[in-house]
Design a protein around this nucleic acid. Structure first.
Lengths: 191, 191
DNA sequence: CCCCGTGATGTCAGTGACTGTCATCGCGTA
DNA sequence: TACGCGATGACAGTCACTGACATCACGGGG
C-alpha cells in the first residue's frame, strides 16, 4: 500500500467503520485508522473534518435524494404527501443494504457523540426538505413543519424497523407510521 | 472570591454564558471560564461533563415539566392533545425570560457543536414524553410518534418565535403550529 | 478544645483530537 | 527536461478532558 494508492478517502472510511465496530469509537485513534489505510493521521483530517464525519459522508447524496423526490412530486400533491413520498424513498434506499445499515446503526447507537452527529445530519435533511417544499410554493411555517414532521416519522419508523429484524420493509414501516400519525391528528380535539 | 465561595456551579455557568457571548464558544477555554469564576479548570470539569454542558443544565427540569404535563392531562385526552399541552407549557416557561432565552439561543446558534448538543437535548425530551405517554397506556409506536412530532412542532414554533421578536407569545405560536400541522394532515391524500 | 472524617478544591502529569506550516513526492504539461 | 500542482508526510503546538494524589474548610465525637 504505497503512498499514492488510489481512493484514499474510501480506504479511510472502510478502516474507520471496521475499527469502530471492532473496538468501539472512543478506543480508536485517528492515527490507528490512518495506519490501517496506509496513511498518516494528518491525511485523515484532510479528508474528514473530524473522527465522526467519516461515518456520515453519504449524507449529501441522501439530501439530494429527498430534495429531488419532493421537487418531482405531482403538482397537486399536498406537502405532507410530498414529504411522505420522499422519506419512503429514503427508506427504500436503505432497504437495499440492510446489513450495512444495521452495522452502521450498531456503531452509532453505541456512542453518544455519534448519536449527536446523527441528529445533526437528520436536522440537515429536514432543512433540505423544507427548502424543496418552499421551492414548490409551500409557505412558512407549513414547509418547515411538514419537513420536521417527516423526519420525526422517519426516525420513529427507522427505530421500529431496527428493533424488528423480521418485520416489514423499511418503506412499508415508514408509510404505516405516516398513516398512524395522520390518524392521531384526526383523533385530536378540534381546534 | 476565595476558594470556598458558595454556588461554584452557578458562578461557572454564569461566567461561561458571558464569555461564550462575548468572544464565542471556541475562542473560550475552560481555564478561562474557571478563572473568571475564581476556580480552576479541573473544578469546572467536576461540575460539567464538558464545555457545552454548562449551557444545558436546565434540561432536567424541562424534562420533568413535560413528563408531568403529560401525566396530568385529562384522562380522555388524545395523545397529540396531551403532547400539545406539554409543549405549550414549555413555551410558557421560556416566555417568562425572553431576553435570557434569546441570548442563550444566539450563543447556541453561533456554534455547530452547541447546536448538536441542543438537538441531543431535544431528542431526550421526546424520549421523556414518549415514556410519559406509555405511562398513560398509549402503545408504541403511537407514543414515540406523537412525542417526536411534538418536538418537531416545538422546534419549528421556537424558530419562528425567535425570528419574529414582536410576534405573538411562544405558547401561542406553539398552539398555532400544532393546529397548522393538523390541517396539513387533513389535506393529505386519504390512505 | 482538639482530632478526624468527609467533601470540595487544587496541582500535576498525562492522552488524544485537531490545526498550522513547511517539506516532499508523483504526475501531467509546456 | 524543467516546472507547476495537488496530495501526502513530518513536526510542533493548542486545548479538551482525565486520573491520581495532595490540601483545604467544616462538621461531629472525644
Amino acid at each position: 500500500m504505497s503512498r499514492w494508492e488510489p481512493n484514499a478517502r474510501g480506504r479511510l472510511a472502510e478502516a474507520a467503520l471496521a475499527l469502530y465496530g471492532e473496538q468501539g469509537f472512543d478506543r480508536t485513534t485517528a492515527a490507528e485508522i490512518a495506519a490501517r489505510a496506509g496513511l498518516t493521521e494528518r491525511t485523515f483530517y484532510r479528508h474528514f473534518a473530524d473522527k465522526r464525519e467519516v461515518l456520515f459522508h453519504g449524507t449529501d447524496m441522501v439530501r439530494e435524494l429527498l430534495a429531488r423526490a419532493i421537487a418531482d412530486a405531482p403538482a397537486g400533491a399536498a406537502p405532507m404527501d410530498a414529504v411522505g413520498t420522499a422519506v419512503e424513498a429514503l427508506g427504500a434506499v436503505l432497504q437495499e443494504n440492510p446489513e450495512r445499515v444495521r452495522l452502521r446503526d450498531t456503531v452509532i447507537s453505541a456512542n453518544a457523540e455519534l448519536r449527536e452527529r446523527e441528529l445533526t445530519k437528520l436536522a440537515g435533511l429536514a432543512t433540505a426538505m423544507a427548502d424543496a417544499l418552499r421551492g414548490r410554493g409551500v409557505p412558512e411555517p407549513a414547509a418547515s413543519l411538514a419537513a420536521e414532521t417527516g423526519i420525526a416519522v422517519f426516525r420513529t419508523a427507522f427505530a421500529h424497523w431496527i428493533r424488528e429484524p423480521h418485520g416489514p420493509d423499511l418503506p412499508g414501516v415508514v408509510r404505516a407510521s405516516m398513516d398512524e400519525l395522520g390518524n392521531a391528528f384526526a383523533r385530536r380535539t378540534p381546534a
